[in-house]
């Protein structure tokens, strides 16, 4: 189980990296970034996995013996933060894409060569 999740995460990271590097459309590049993001989140959650344990949400019975019943809560709390930051970053990137499209009426990355040397 842990292996499946971590391999999925690594594959998502590779797919996202491929999308960032090979696509020409700005929106597709941004989608590549979000897939990259998701892959890293999946890897982080899978690192905290403990065999046969459940989500770190307790009830009255399991609260007495929490250590024996839950997976590592620290990576999950970090991923919660990372998802929110990822949301903010992708919103910003999309807004820049809107602004660039407004200026040049194009989303093709090859049309933006102002800073290329």
């Amino acid at each position: 189980m842990g292996y499946i999740i971590i391999i999925t995460g690594f594959l998502l990271v590779l797919i996202g990296l491929w999308g960032i590097l090979s696509q020409k459309n700005l929106i597709k590049i941004i989608l590549g970034f979000t897939i990259f993001d998701t892959g890293i989140n999946v890897v982080m959650v899978s690192i905290g996995y403990v065999k046969g344990k459940t989500a770190p949400i307790l009830d009255i019975i399991s609260a007495k013996d929490a250590l024996k019943s839950v997976v590592d809560p620290v990576p999950q709390a970090l991923v919660l933060t990372s998802i929110v930051i990822g949301l903010g970053v992708s919103a910003l990137m999309l807004v820049y894409a809107i602004k660039l499209h407004h200026d040049k009426k194009s989303l093709d990355i090859n049309n933006f060569k102002d800073l290329k040397w």
Binding site: G48, D59, P73, V74
Partner: peptide
């Protein structure tokens, strides 16, 4: 895949969240 929680910080949170904070969701 580990078979028990051996991250010290995570173990501390899991053990004490119910008594110190009182939240069911760690």
């Amino acid at each position: 895949v580990p078979t028990e929680l051996n991250n010290k910080l995570g173990a501390y949170y899991a053990e004490n969240a119910a008594t110190q904070v009182g939240a069911a969701n760690i």
